[in-house]
């Protein structure tokens, strides 16, 4: 996923600037709700997912598969935030391939290969959809419940890649290769 690196790409707006992490947290925390006797708790996944990433990063650092910087990307950041971008991808990849000690991961991921694969994949998909859909352009209303969001500007990623957004249509008709009238059984039964 493209990330903020304003030192190298001054004109580039990364997923981080656009708050895409908040989108991912919301999506992880609103994914699963189950029945427990008389009530239906939501199973929030964002926090355990963050702990899982730190735990996986620690394993890879201890095995010398990745190298930790002494400084975190943000205050009080865990081990995952001490890694370079490429080593963070390496950590995700190790989780994806289940190539670490799954017993050391936090609940509900401990020895739960299916859920690990599902959530690590979802991190990637959510990052893509959060960044390239209109979500960031809901601006200050981004984290409102979905019915109470308002687009505050034209999505920057759409502008950057040349997607014109919601359209009434396009004068792009180049004719038909053939129509139903021109195939056997196509229009015989139509009034």
């Amino acid at each position: 996923m493209p990330q903020a690196n304003t030192h190298q790409y001054a004109s580039f707006f990364g997923a981080n600037d656009m708050g895409v992490y908040a989108y991912i947290i919301y999506a992880l925390d609103h994914n699963i709700q189950i029945q427990r006797q008389l009530y239906q708790p939501i199973v929030p996944l964002a926090h355990p997912t963050a702990v899982m990433l730190d735990s996986a990063a620690t394993q890879l650092v201890n095995n010398r598969q990745v190298q930790a910087f002494s400084q975190s990307l943000f205050l009080n950041g865990g081990m995952f935030s001490h890694l370079s971008r490429e080593d963070r991808i390496r950590t995700l990849s190790a989780l994806d391939n289940l190539s670490l000690d799954l017993y050391l991961l936090p609940s509900p991921f401990q020895n739960n290969a299916g859920l690990i694969k599902f959530v690590v994949d979802a991190l990637n998909r959510f990052a893509m959809f959060g960044y390239y859909s209109e979500w960031p352009a809901y601006g200050t209303t981004r984290l409102n419940q979905p019915n109470n969001r308002k687009l505050e500007y034209f999505p920057l990623t759409w502008q950057k890649i040349g997607y014109p957004g919601v359209s009434f249509g396009y004068r792009a008709f180049r004719g038909f290769l053939f129509t139903m009238d021109e195939v056997e059984g196509g229009n015989e039964n139509r009034s």
Binding site: R125, M128, F129, G130, Y131, Y132, S133, E134, W135, T157, W158, I161, Y163
Partner: peptide, 9 residues
């Protein structure tokens, strides 16, 4: 598809 629905899959 539109950009988000393209990038994701």
């Amino acid at each position: 598809e539109s950009p988000g629905l393209s990038a994701q899959p």
